[in-house]
Design a binder for these strands. Structure first.
Length: 491
RNA sequence: GUCCCUGUCGUCUAGCCCGGUCUAGGACACCGCCCUUUCACGGCGGCAACACGGGUUCGAAUCCCGUCAGGGACGCCA
């Protein structure tokens, strides 16, 4: 690559950042970073009816969250009217365009007719070769004119960096509208203007733009400009094999954020969705991905978005995290769930480290800390039903807990360590001739409400003496008040 | 309907350009076993694919053609 790499992502603010757009952004970003180029953010907000301010913010927030920092922008198309005017003027004087007086209604009617006739849907060329008299006549009728490009004979081709040689006969391209009757450029024209004006070297975008690329190349030609290099990305599919959309579940980056995914998981996963480094590496750091990234290795077939693999990958990255960073990542989720406050986290950092270390290898989602570790933060939890049946209803459960209460109670608070509590429990078991498990399982249920979790003595020491004794008493009380098991009844 | 793209385990993929090293490799998921106070992690093992049909060739997942299937695009939206 001789000229400096300049690429962009150009979302339109009609919704939150979609995973498909996020991936396009990522591949542009990776390409830019790999080649030490420039990544630009451009907001395509010319459709006022669909664009919303909140989404402009949301999209930027999501890109930032993902760590896809842009070097220039955001550039708003809505603020570039004068730039477009200049190019519209330039195009107007080109003989590659002609005024079209057909009204949108007339065109829509023709389109429907063609569809009904099962004919190719094309512009019929009604205004392509109007005589000066006809034009004057339309003008006098007061019909506003849009500007159509006159596609010449021949074929249009380009070298796609992912798909290779692409070409199609020009008669399959339409004389499409470049400038609306109100003088504003349509998407394809605005896109060309911006990409050229902003000095884009490569345009990397979704496969759904392949036809636009041919059209845009014709605009570059009409304007006598050098087109950039193009690369198209396969489209992400949902589990049912159709283009991923809301009905497949989560599709926007913010949703994944609130579900408890790490930004780097999304980056890593999206990078692997359609691209591979060529070896067996899957769990990769950002730098490794940048280092190995190339468009040549993008797989041209459409991948299916697999949430299970995403979740696995999230677990991998959580396990690889520094516990301090993990606390920070966990914070919003814990706070949102009302389990703690930022201040509390700050002031009990050492204790948080213990909690996080105990839970780290068990988390797949950050929100798992809320669903599986709430008991570290609150006494307000229920006992697992199956656990109650198996542990609390068992003969001798109360005695076991009473024994533990006494054994733990005998340990001074200052000596309430993992070693001491474990020894105490094992000695208790030995003295009664029971297996340690007879004590461990009811204890876990009493302390956490759950049947699984970190090593029990980790839990015991993290909770501390007072809370342990308290919860053991609670459990004893609970068991004593358990209703008798009812015979199976149909009521 | 027209045009375009794609087609390796259920899913993500390596291999394909430069045919033999592929009895097709890895990962997720799933199923066993091991580790273990539980859950998870980890380890070991298993299941499972070159869409189909023709060519070309001594030899094809790899090259060519066709069929089929999936996806996308057909706006004075972006």
């Amino acid at each position: 690559m001789t000229s400096p790499v300049r690429v962009r992502i150009a979302p339109s603010p009609s919704g939150h950042l979609h995973v498909g757009t996020a991936r396009a952004a990522l591949y542009n970003w990776l390409f830019a970073r790999h080649h030490k180029g420039t990544f630009v953010l451009r907001i395509e907000d010319t459709d006022k009816t669909r664009s919303e301010e909140q989404y402009v913010d949301s999209i930027q927030a999501s890109l930032t969250w993902l760590g896809l920092n842009w070097d220039e922008g955001p550039v708003f198309q809505s603020q570039r009217g004068d730039v477009y005017d200049r190019y519209v003027e330039k195009l107007r004087h080109s003989d590659s365009v002609y005024p079209c007086y057909c009204t949108p209604d007339e065109l829509a009617a023709k389109r429907e007719q063609q569809l009904a006739d099962k004919a190719p849907v094309r512009y019929d060329g009604h205004c392509r070769d109007l005589t000066p008299e006809q034009r004057t006549s339309y003008e006098e009728e007061g019909r506003p004119a849009a500007l159509r490009i006159r596609i010449p004979e021949g074929e249009t081709s380009y070298q796609d960096l992912v798909y290779g040689e692409m070409k199609r006969p020009n008669d399959e391209l339409d004389d499409f509208i470049c400038v609306r009757a109100d003088g504003t450029p349509t998407y394809n024209f605005a896109c060309v203007i911006d990409d050229h004006d902003m000095g884009m070297s490569h345009v990397i975008r979704g496969n759904d733009h392949q036809v636009n690329t041919f059209k845009q190349i014709q605009i570059y030609r009409a304007l006598d400009l050098e087109p950039p290099r193009f690369a198209h990305l396969p489209l992400i599919l949902g589990p049912d094999g159709s283009k991923i959309s809301k009905r497949h579940g989560a599709t926007s980056v913010t949703e994944f954020e609130s579900m408890g995914y790490l930004p780097h998981t999304m980056v890593n996963f999206l990078a692997l969705l359609g691209w591979s480094p060529g070896d067996d590496r899957e769990v990769m750091t950002r730098d490794e991905i940048i280092e190995s990234f190339s468009l040549e290795r993008v797989n041209p077939s459409n991948p299916v978005f697999d949430q299970q693999k995403l979740q696995w990958l999230n677990g991998e990255h959580i396990r690889r995290m520094n516990p301090n960073d993990l606390i920070n990542a966990l914070r919003p989720h814990l706070v949102d769930a009302g389990l703690t406050t930022p201040l509390e986290i700050e002031t009990r950092w050492a204790w948080m480290l213990e909690v996080v270390t105990a839970m780290q290898e068990r988390l797949h989602l950050l929100t798992d800390m809320v669903t599986q570790g709430a008991y570290f933060f609150t006494d307000d939890f229920r006992y697992d039903e199956k656990g109650v049946k198996k542990q609390f209803r068992r003969e001798g459960a109360i005695d076991a807990l009473k024994g533990l209460a006494q054994a733990f109670g005998n340990i001074p608070d200052s000596e309430f360590t993992k070693e001491r509590t474990e020894t105490a429990l094992r000695e208790l078991a030995e003295s009664t001739g029971e297996k340690p498990a007879r004590y461990i399982h009811p204890l876990r249920l009493a302390l956490t409400g759950m049947t699984g979790g970190p090593g029990i003595f980790d839990v015991v020491t993290i909770l501390g003496r007072a809370r342990c004794l308290d919860r053991i008493q609670q459990a004893i009380h609970f068991i004593e008040n358990l209703p008798p098991v009812e015979a199976e009844s149909g009521s």
